[in-house]
Amino acid sequence: MSIQVNRLADPLVRAFVTAVNAHDKDAFNALLAPGATMADDGSDRDVADWTEREIFSCNGHMDVESESDGGRTLLVSYRNDTWGEMRTKWSFTVDDAGRISRFETGQA
């Protein structure tokens, strides 16, 4: 059973999931701090390249199963046209300006 996006505890993470599911690249990028970084399965990746390949060009979609760490860590059923559906964990680091400075994802 998934959590409705509008019920996610952290407003920034809620906006991140909303932007991913709407395929709204501008809204997504506005949430990221300058120089934001990310990792996939423990390996650092280029944010722009990875998000284009894994989210925006292949209809990425997040169904949140659970949240922890005040809403900054999510267990997600993630799907896209490239890989199908998989269970993933997402964690977010937020900077002092209230933007995402790093996010990490990987198989759960």
Rank of each mutant, 00 (worst) to 15 (best):
Tyr78His: 02
Gly98Arg: 01
Ala22Gln: 15
Glu85Phe: 07
Ala27Ser: 10
Ala48Tyr: 12
Gly42Leu: 05
Leu8Asp: 06
Ser101Gly: 13
Arg87Ala: 12
Ser43Cys: 09
Asp40Phe: 15
Asp26Ser: 14
Ile3Trp: 02
Asn21His: 06
Ala108Pro: 07
Lys89Phe: 10
Thr51Tyr: 08
Thr93Cys: 10
Tyr78Asp: 00
Ala19Ile: 08
Ala15Asp: 15
Met86Leu: 12
Leu31Glu: 00
Thr37Trp: 04
Arg14Trp: 05
Arg72Phe: 00
Ala48Trp: 10
Ala108Leu: 08
Arg99Asp: 07
Glu52Val: 08
Leu75Glu: 11
Ala39Asp: 13
Arg72Leu: 00
Phe103Lys: 11
Leu12Pro: 05
Val17His: 00
Phe28Lys: 00
Ile3Tyr: 03
Phe92Trp: 03
Gly71His: 04
Asn80His: 08
Lys25Tyr: 11
Ala27Leu: 03
Arg14Thr: 06
Gly106Cys: 02
Ile100His: 03
Asp95Trp: 01
Ala108Ile: 06
Pro34Glu: 01
Ser91Asn: 13
Gln4Phe: 12
Cys58Ala: 13
Asp49His: 12
Arg87Asn: 12
Cys58Glu: 09
Asp49Asn: 11
Val5Gln: 14
Ala19Val: 10
Tyr78Trp: 04
Arg79His: 13
Gln107Arg: 15
Ile3Pro: 03
Ala30Gly: 14
Asp46Lys: 07
Asn29Thr: 09
Tyr78Cys: 01
Asp24Cys: 05
Phe56Lys: 01
Trp50Ser: 02
Leu75Asn: 11
Leu12Gln: 13
Asn21Gly: 09
Ser101Arg: 15
Asn80Phe: 07
Phe103Gly: 10
Ser77Gln: 13
Asp95Gly: 02
Gly35Pro: 04
Asp41Arg: 02
Ala36Gly: 05
Thr18Asp: 15
Gly84Arg: 06
Thr37Asp: 06
Ile55Tyr: 07
Asn21Gln: 05
Leu75Ser: 12
Phe16Glu: 06
Glu67Asp: 01
Gly70Asn: 12
Asp69Tyr: 07
Leu74Tyr: 00
Ser2Trp: 11
Ile100Tyr: 06
Ser101His: 12
Arg72Gln: 02
Ala36Asp: 07
Met86Val: 14
Asp95Ala: 02
Met86Cys: 09
Ser101Thr: 12
Ala19Phe: 08
Ala33Tyr: 01
Thr93Asn: 10
Ala30Ile: 08
Glu54Cys: 09
